[in-house]
Design a protein around this nucleic acid. Sequence first.
RNA 1: GCGAAAGUGGCGGAAUUGGCAGACGCGCCAGACUUAGGAUCUGGUCCCGCAAGGGGUGGGGGUUCGAGUCCCCCCUUUCGCACCA
Length: 832
Amino acid sequence: MDYNPQEIEAKWQERWARERLFETDADPARPRYYVLEMLPYPSGDIHMGHVRNYSIGDALARYLRMKGYNVLHPMGWDAFGLPAENAAIKSGRHPSEFTFSHIDRMRGQLQRLGFSYDWRREVATCVPEYYRWNQWFFIKMFERGLAYRKYSRVNWCPKCETVLANEQVVDGCCWRHEDTRVEERELEQWFLKTTAYAEQLLDDMKMLRWPERVLTMQRNWIGKSTGAEVDFKVDGLGESIRIFTTRIDTIFGCTALFLAAEHPVVQKLMAASKRPEELAREVERIAASSVQARVEVNLKKEGAPTGFTARNPFNGESVPVWIANFVLTGYGTGAVMAVPAHDQRDFEFCTAYGLPIRTVILPAGAGAGPASGAASSAPTAFTEYGVLENSGAYSGLGSEDAIERMTGDAEKAGFGQRKVHFRLKDWGVSRQRYWGTPIPMIYCGQCGIVPVPEADLPVVLPRNVKLTGEGRAALATVPEFVEVKCPKCGGAGRRETDTMDTFVDSSWYMYRYTDPKISTAPINREIVKQWFPVDQYIGGIEHAILHLIYMRFWTKVMRDIGLVEFPEPVTRLFNQGMVIKDGAKMSKSKGNVVDPVAMCARYGADTVRLYMLFAAPPEKDLEWSDRGIEGAWRFLNRVYRMASGHADRLRAVSEPVGEAGPWSAEERRLLRKSHQTLRHVSEDMEERWHFNTDVAVIMELANEIADLEPAIESGAVRPAVLRSALEVLVLLLAPFAPHIADELWGALGHEGSTQRVAWPAFDPELAAEEELEIPVQVNGKLRARIRVPATATDDEIRILALDESKVREHLEGRQLVKAIIVPKKLVNVVVR
RNA sequence: GCGAAAGUGGCGGAAUUGGCAGACGCGCCAGACUUAGGAUCUGGUCCCGCAAGGGGUGGGGGUUCGAGUCCCCCCUUUCGCACCA
């Protein structure tokens, strides 16, 4: 009789599996819905963050199945590169031992939580079959010029001992090691050309129903800026310096040029300089300080003159060329024009070094005289659009017009051109690690870079490798792996020894789920067409500019090589909040973790899941509370006692509730409450997703049934009505606490899982109140409540309200101005 | 610094469209049952007040018959961006 979750959950989990309840069938008549949760690193144990993520997704999946959808709800595992290698280095065992045993372990934990995954569609991204298709994609991209190799300065995490992509650097630190500063190294690396899709990644955001926050982050990350490039000829040298500006309208106010210390022309200036040693020293100093600027916020602006001047092509004026620490090498051309009057940074720099400041833009609508005088003595730059002055033929134009005209004129005269720059950089995918997809390339002295022929894929990892963790590509130490014949000429070649970033794996795993076993192609086009795009993706915000940009890029590449016909892989995205304990995100290093497995052992999966949904709305952070979960536990106990207490009697009842009564007042009350609850949960599941309030109204229904216990004893609530209310209660609970729901569904005399039962429809007539309690305000203050039949007209309500004794008291000696009736809601009597 | 979101009891939170502020749960108080209670059940629980009544959604102003909700100013917190020319 006592609620024993362990027993119930084990029984139903076994039965769900035996009946293959969650296996996605191919019934073409039913509408399809693809629910996907972000896949985990198999770190060995699932944590509460996972449980929350999956409780949300599973509630949705279970609801949709009951609504008649054919639901695809898969689960898989990301490649687990670094943790596996570190564990291997420590123990001397092979990384695969960790990876696969951890996957098994986490799968077991998820099964214990009773999530409704179709395990036939499980995908692990760390197996040779998956490597094959990563490599296949890589070669396709190489053939299209979308994968290339270049020697460049890269981010290096000393803890990971490997390269990081720009997206993987957070506040100057590694995304995995939040307190490890990223270093810079010069390395030859493979890149994927995400920049080729910058414009599309930006444009296609309009078709995404994603949180605005994520879209904004992506927009910032892509960082489109439209402007112009203009050439300044260096006086006395054959060189010219090309600058990028979004404010060509301010160019008459240019009083200097600023170069990044690493700008290529700096070498030439040094060579031509009259005082080369001195200049070289200065350049070195500025270079050092600009490296620091990348890490430090608000670094002091520093610079040095080169001694050269360059000619402004618009007014023929020569301005000094400086080196400045705040000019970024990697953005635009690495050179900018200094317009101190209209750019805050230039203003600070020029003020510090005494360079002249010349106003050329006036605020629109301001008088010419006073404004120009004020601007030259102002402590800040005027950076907004305005009207040009001191700008030759362009004076008097508005900024917008001027930008258009001046850019056009520069193009005609041949010293400049329209230009769009993006902040987005290509994705550096080389990793100097063992456990990852080998990059399928061979270097030949004769033929250059040659991709491994498709027939030879996959290139697999050699087993006999010694992992040192010393930051050199581990594969380079295995001669049998490295030494290979060139597929083109048959001569001696060398294999690439870097492996791919594991974000490659997660960029297309959602496709693989639709047909995980296909061996002739990365995806089954026909089946993908049936399921894609993913209807609902659920995961944390932390991948806003990592996985979620890579994934979008990958889909666009897949479309361009003819694998899919749509531009975006995921229509709707939902970000659940983090699980917090003692004010901080749960993490092993902080020692504030709550183990879901232990919680399951104590309370059962249903209680844990119900609490995860009840304690906070899903998009907000959830503060873990040991007391709070007790509440969920008590609730399920109450429901269990209540339902199973009545079950024996109710099982025998066969008569239906009846279409229209006649019902006792208590029966009406019960039916009304259950249909109101049904309405709330049904509507909420469709759009709003405030699962915490769904659980709250389900609790209210349970409380209502408990309150009616005397009426049930006395027969005022007949068994058929009670049974209908209990069935609603159980079915509503099914998405949130599925085991106990199925158990009680059985106790009420039904066969099988609630997942095979149609979601009940609510009856608006049963949900409607017969009598309303309407608050009556006098001048906005609550003075009384009146009870009126639900059918009462506004006039009837007005008469009743004005007749109420409390209201009459407040009316005494005053003049009635009007009575505002909000139908079925409220009356406000206005008096003077 | 710029941008966005948020701020409601002792706590998590509710109030979906401008209409009863505090649903539901936790905690707390009182009681019942009990050898016992960290089990269960019943009642109470925004603040001041014996009550009548008054006050109350970060602070200040405004719009409105009516504001947690809309507008303006300020404060605080969180998140994102941060020399992107």
